[in-house]
Design a binder for these strands. Structure first.
Lengths: 158, 158
DNA sequence: CAATAATCATTCGTGCTCGAACGATAGGGT
DNA sequence: ACCCTATCGTTCGAGCACGAATGATTATTG
């Protein structure tokens, strides 16, 4: 269903590297897999791939390719690729970006806007991970934040 | 570093679909991204891609292609692809699987076994997500398990 | 102002992943 | 024995994602 499930390797990091508490890592992977699956299902429902739906989702307003890539969390070549597909289907158009002649501005067409509305509706229909109360969700968020903070993150500035 | 970071779309599922608690979904994605990054770094350190390292990791004993795919959480064509690369490098060999002439058995060579040992050593070196005490880890696991259990999982049987 | 460096989008090559279709073998029913 | 179905691994086509290199434009520096 999803673009590709990234070869979860739940057992890998969850095996010996986890110490005395097995099962945590697989759960993390499973959780993100659920989120991915939900998004991919909504994308498929409106006739898009997950990557394309991601682009459409982020195109609430016209932006340059670069900015779109930033929002999609991917590299420029990938943006070019995905936008190519959307443009072939008439869902977006590339135009000049005012104030910078080397950049291009991507904007949804009327069709694209309609599809985006459909996508948003689908996404809101049945969000996953609702099995927790508000207090539990807060605890979960706190724990995750702490786990990540005390771990070794990617250097904030290069 | 990773094979590809799957276009996280943290904002997507974390935006309106999350209700009154923003920031949970991005944290989940970030956590798995850390795990992926750690694994990919270890893979690169021993001269493998993440997918190849995943296969090598799972090849503790000789298995059929199908079983290997199951362990790697991916589809058969993918196993063929990855095993092809490993076989070209002399890290694995394909042989007949006793008792079933259409299946093949994949086994690590001596080189493959050596590389696997290196990989395991690297993986154990500095496992991520250690920033939590044992009690917090247990809580985290419990919460995740509950969130997933009460959500709508993939149908257990097709 | 001219030369250099930085940035933009693209193209190219490589790798990963999947679904569909294929030949080969295995197993069940008649 | 014979067919029919299921399974095994592979091949093929498509899409996603990245790093490196390119031409066009902008910004900076001398």
């Amino acid at each position: 269903m999803d673009t590709r499930d990234r070869g979860r390797r739940t057992a890998v990091s969850g095996g010996s590297a986890e110490g005395a508490l097995p099962g945590l890592t697989p759960l993390l992977y499973e959780a993100t897999a659920r989120l991915d699956a939900h998004f991919a299902a909504c994308a498929t429902a409106v006739g898009l791939t997950a990557a394309q739906a991601n682009a459409v989702y982020e195109l609430a307003d016209p932006v340059g390719m670069r900015e779109l890539g930033r929002r999609m969390c991917c590299e420029p070549p990938n943006v070019t690729f995905v936008v190519d597909r959307l443009e072939e289907r008439g869902l977006v158009v590339r135009g000049p970006l005012p104030g910078d002649r080397r950049a291009k501005q991507v904007a949804l067409t009327a069709d694209g806007l309609g599809l985006r509305a459909e996508l948003l509706a689908k996404l809101a229909e049945d969000p996953p991970l609702r099995g927790l109360g508000d207090a539990d969700r807060r605890t979960l968020r706190t724990l995750l934040a702490r786990a990540l903070a005390e771990s070794d993150p990617a250097p904030t500035d290069a």
